[in-house]
Computed example of a mutant assay.
Amino acid sequence: MRVTTKGQVTIPQHIREKMGITPHAEVDFIEEDGRVILVKRDRDASVPPTFRRVRGVATIRMSTDEIMALTRGDQ
C-alpha cells in the first residue's frame, strides 16, 4: 500500500466493511511497539454531528432579505 503526497492511504474495502468504517467515520491511529494501529473511534450514535443536530431547527419562515434586515437593524 502506498502513501500519497498528502499522507493518505486507502483502507481496503473488506477491512472497512468488517470494521464498520463508513464515510465520515472517525478513526484513531495508535503507536504501539514500533507499529501504527488504526482503530475505529467509538462515538455515541445518539449524538449526531454538529451540523445535522441543528439542521432544520428554525421554525419561522423568513426570506433572506428579512433576515439580513434583522441582522443589520433595518427594522
Rank of each mutant, 00 (worst) to 15 (best):
R2E: 09
V3E: 13
V3R: 09
T5C: 06
K6H: 07
G7V: 02
Q8K: 10
T10N: 08
I11L: 15
P12V: 14
Q13G: 06
H14T: 10
H14W: 10
I15F: 12
I15W: 13
R16F: 00
K18A: 15
K18R: 15
K18F: 08
M19R: 10
M19Q: 14
G20C: 01
G20F: 04
I21S: 03
T22Q: 11
T22R: 11
T22W: 05
T22V: 12
P23S: 06
H24W: 08
H24Q: 12
H24T: 12
A25I: 00
A25W: 03
A25Q: 04
A25K: 04
E26Q: 12
E26I: 04
V27N: 03
V27H: 05
D28E: 13
F29H: 04
F29V: 13
I30W: 08
I30V: 14
E32Q: 11
E32T: 09
D33I: 02
G34P: 01
G34N: 06
R35A: 11
R35E: 12
V36D: 02
V36Y: 05
V36W: 02
L38E: 01
V39I: 12
V39W: 04
V39E: 09
V39Q: 12
V39A: 12
V39H: 07
K40T: 00
K40N: 02
R41V: 11
R41E: 08
R41I: 03
R41H: 12
R43A: 02
R43V: 13
D44L: 07
D44C: 07
D44S: 05
A45Q: 11
S46F: 06
V47E: 10
V47W: 03
V47R: 12
P48K: 14
P48L: 15
P49R: 10
P49H: 07
T50H: 07
F51N: 07
F51G: 06
F51T: 08
R52H: 07
R53H: 08
V54M: 10
V54R: 10
R55Y: 06
G56A: 01
G56K: 01
G56Y: 00
G56F: 05
A58I: 09
A58H: 00
T59V: 11
I60V: 15
I60Y: 05
R61I: 11
M62I: 10
M62T: 05
S63L: 05
S63Q: 07
S63Y: 00
T64G: 07
T64W: 06
T64S: 06
D65I: 04
I67S: 01
I67V: 15
I67H: 01
I67L: 15
M68E: 14
M68R: 15
A69W: 01
R72D: 10
R72H: 07
R72N: 14
R72Q: 14
G73M: 00
G73I: 00
